[in-house]
């Protein structure tokens, strides 16, 4: 008898039952000297404490990265990362980018044409010509 792995019983669907924010960590890298980090430094001083307090489920790390442009990196539950360079931006623009990283799911950008994706079985079943009353031609 061959060994068979356990089949997956259920698929996780975020929001059914519990909701888990997909962004688990945000890294902020800045430079003290360079001018492109000015908005980022202002963001870290003025806006980041409020943002961090409002999102206790996100781990936030701030670390210097001298002689480089400022970067915000988001780490997601599915193991992927997404990074945005925020050079020469104002603090509010950096906040927009941070919100974008917070709302993202970590998946690759896909073009979808159908709005609804479902893994449920069809509620009304599949139509069959051999069942029901039939149709007189």
């Amino acid at each position: 008898m061959t060994i068979r792995g356990l089949p997956q019983i259920s698929t996780g669907r975020n929001g059914v039952g519990a909701f888990i924010l997909q962004c688990k960590r945000l890294d902020f890298h800045y430079c003290d000297w360079a001018g492109s980090s000015r908005g980022m430094n202002g963001f870290i001083k003025s806006l980041l404490p409020k943002f961090a307090a409002a999102h206790p489920q996100i781990e936030i790390t701030v670390s210097p990265r001298p002689r480089k442009h400022p970067v915000v990196v988001g780490h997601y539950v599915n193991g992927k990362t997404k990074s945005i360079e925020v050079k020469n931006m104002e603090p509010m623009q950096v906040l927009q980018k941070v919100k974008l990283l917070r709302d993202a799911s970590g998946e690759k950008d896909k073009r979808t044409t159908k709005p609804v994706t479902s893994i449920n079985e069809s509620v009304r079943g599949i139509w069959s010509p051999y069942h029901g009353n039939g149709m007189r031609v």
Binding site: R13, V16, F19, L21, Q22, R102, D103, T112, P115, V116, T117, S118, I119, N120, V123
Partner: peptide
């Protein structure tokens, strides 16, 4: 219109203002 059942994921064709994840 969106025909949905429980557990379905819906990608709306617009960005809804003033909502947060959760």
């Amino acid at each position: 219109p969106y025909l949905v059942t429980e557990g379905d994921a819906v990608r709306l064709p617009f960005l809804m203002p003033d909502v947060q994840p959760g």
